[in-house]
C-alpha cells in the first residue's frame, strides 16, 4: 500500500514523534493591573476578544473586521505610532482560517503589542495603508505569499514572485519541489515555447550530479581522460518532479475538495 500523505499540508514533518510526547507551552500571563498594557486593554475593550502577555509582549485578539478601528485607537490614543510588521500564518488545514498579526511598536514607552485576528478562507481583509504606509509593501507580500486580498490597497500586486506566477508559496499546500511547469518556466518566458527542443528543460536540482559527466566531475581512484565516455551505453535518469496540486482558495467548490 502506498504511504498516505496529507494533501492539505505537504510541508516537512518530523519523521518520528514519541506517541506520549506532549508539547509544553510558552507561559502566558494575564495582563497586570495598573501596567502600561492594562491601559491598552481597556482602550481596546470594545474590540478585544482575548488578551494576554506572552514573552513580554501584549497579544490582543480581535475580529478581522475591526482591524482598522482597533489599530487607529492604538495609533492615535495609545501612542503605537509604528507598525513594525504584519503577516499571516496558514491554519487552513486545521481551521480553514488564516491568522493575521500586526506587530505594533510604541516608541516612547518602548512597548510592543501584537494584534491578532483570524480571517476565514476566501475572505478579504481591509488594508491598513491609510494608517500605516509600511503596509503598502507588507500587504503586497502577504497577498503574494498567501493570496490574502487586502481591500482598498493602492497597488495590490505580487511583489517577490514574478507577476505571472501561479500559487502562493507560503501556503501549506504549496509543493516543496518544482513541477514540470516550473522546469519550463524560464525557457518559455525568455525564449518562447518553440525553443524548448533546442534548450531543454531547466535543471532545478542544485545538487544534481551526473555520474557520467567526466568534464566537471572526477572520480577518485577511477580517473579517466577529460570528456571520456564512461556510460557504457547506459542512459541518465531524468529528474522526476512531484505532481502539483493547486488549490484555489478564492472559490471553494466541492469538486476541488474531492480532488485534493
Amino acid at each position: 500500500m502506498r504511504k498516505y500523505t496529507p494533501k492539505d499540508n505537504v510541508q516537512g514533518k518530523a519523521y518520528y514523534t514519541d506517541r506520549f510526547w506532549v508539547a509544553p507551552r510558552v507561559p502566558r500571563t494575564s495582563v497586570e493591573e495598573d501596567s502600561h498594557f492594562a491601559d491598552i486593554v481597556s482602550a481596546l475593550k470594545k474590540y478585544a476578544k482575548d488578551s494576554y502577555v506572552e514573552v513580554g509582549q501584549l497579544i490582543v485578539h480581535i475580529k478581522p473586521t475591526d482591524n482598522i478601528s482597533a489599530l487607529s485607537i492604538l495609533k492615535e490614543k495609545c501612542g503605537y505610532t509604528q507598525c513594525s510588521e504584519l503577516s499571516a500564518v496558514d491554519y487552513l488545514a486545521q481551521d480553514g482560517e488564516f491568522e493575521i498579526f500586526y506587530q505594533m511598536l510604541n516608541v516612547t514607552e518602548a512597548a510592543r503589542v501584537r494584534v491578532v485576528c483570524r480571517l476565514k478562507q476566501g475572505e478579504a481583509i481591509e488594508s491598513i495603508v491609510p494608517l500605516f504606509k509600511m503596509a503598502n509593501f507588507a500587504e503586497r507580500e502577504m497577498f503574494d505569499m498567501f493570496g490574502i486580498v487586502a481591500n482598498n490597497h493602492p497597488y495590490l500586486k505580487r511583489i517577490l514572485m514574478p507577476e505571472d506566477w501561479s500559487g502562493h508559496p507560503l501556503l501549506k499546500t504549496y509543493p516543496l519541489q518544482g513541477d514540470e511547469a516550473a522546469s519550463w518556466y524560464e525557457v518559455d518566458k525568455i525564449f518562447g515555447k518553440e525553443y524548448r527542443d533546442i534548450i531543454g528543460s531547466e535543471n532545478r536540482d542544485p545538487a544534481k550530479i551526473d555520474r557520467y559527466d567526466t568534464k566537471r566531475f572526477s572520480r577518485v581512484g577511477y580517473e579517466v581522460q577529460f570528456d571520456a565516455d564512461i556510460s557504457g551505453g547506459e542512459k541518465e535518469n531524468p529528474i522526476e518532479y512531484s505532481k502539483t496540486i493547486m488549490a484555489n482558495y478564492q472559490k471553494p467548490s466541492k469538486k476541488l475538495k474531492e480532488r485534493r
Binding site: A14, A23, R25, V26, E54, V55, E85, R112, R114
Partner: peptide
C-alpha cells in the same frame, strides 16, 4: 522541539 507558542524578538 521548542514549546508551543509565538515570539517576536
Amino acid at each position: 522541539r521548542p514549546p508551543v507558542g509565538e515570539v517576536y524578538v
